[in-house]
């Protein structure tokens, strides 16, 4: 049913749960995984170097989490590629999934309160709204 699954990785516990589910699904369907982290660049920044600095920080931050994800998937016998992409989280995930022909997006849910969701926006909600393919939001403690 699924051939290429995108799993969103942000270094959090929620992403770890999502990865576990994605690897399980990949095993069941013989699918490959794209583990993707999104480097959110500062909006309306003032120096080009501020943008570069944010990219460097994000790449450094996410590379560890992606390495762990890679190791886990490999040990489970699942083919995986990892990427750090710049952009707005939901937008970048949806576009990346489309560009790479992914047929499922798996991501964790942080369980934001109403106020937090209002202030910060829910990435999973935005992804569900805009994705061209099914989106699995992994909830729970």
């Amino acid at each position: 049913m699924f051939e290429r699954i995108l799993v969103a990785i942000d270094g959090s516990e929620h992403a770890r749960r999502a990865l576990t589910v994605a690897v399980d699904l990949a095993q069941k369907y013989g699918a490959s995984l794209c583990a993707v982290s999104v480097a959110h660049l500062p909006e309306f920044s003032d120096l080009r170097d501020e943008v570069n600095g944010a990219l460097e920080d994000a790449t450094k931050f996410f590379s560890r989490a992606l390495e762990e994800a890679k190791g886990f998937a490999q040990e489970e016998g699942v083919e995986i590629e990892t990427s750090v992409i710049p952009g707005h989280p939901a937008d970048a995930l949806v576009r990346f999934a489309e560009a790479r022909g992914c047929d499922l997006i798996v991501m964790g849910a942080r369980g934001l309160s109403t106020i937090q969701r209002y202030l910060m926006g829910s990435v999973s909600e935005a992804t569900v709204r805009h994705a061209h393919c099914p989106v699995l939001v992994v909830k729970g403690k």
Partner: peptide, 18 residues
């Protein structure tokens, strides 16, 4: 859009469950 910052592709070598 697909041009990412740090792409790596990995094929599994073993099948040990963790």
């Amino acid at each position: 859009r697909g041009a990412e910052l740090s792409p790596t592709a990995v094929r599994p070598e073993g099948k040990k469950r963790v």
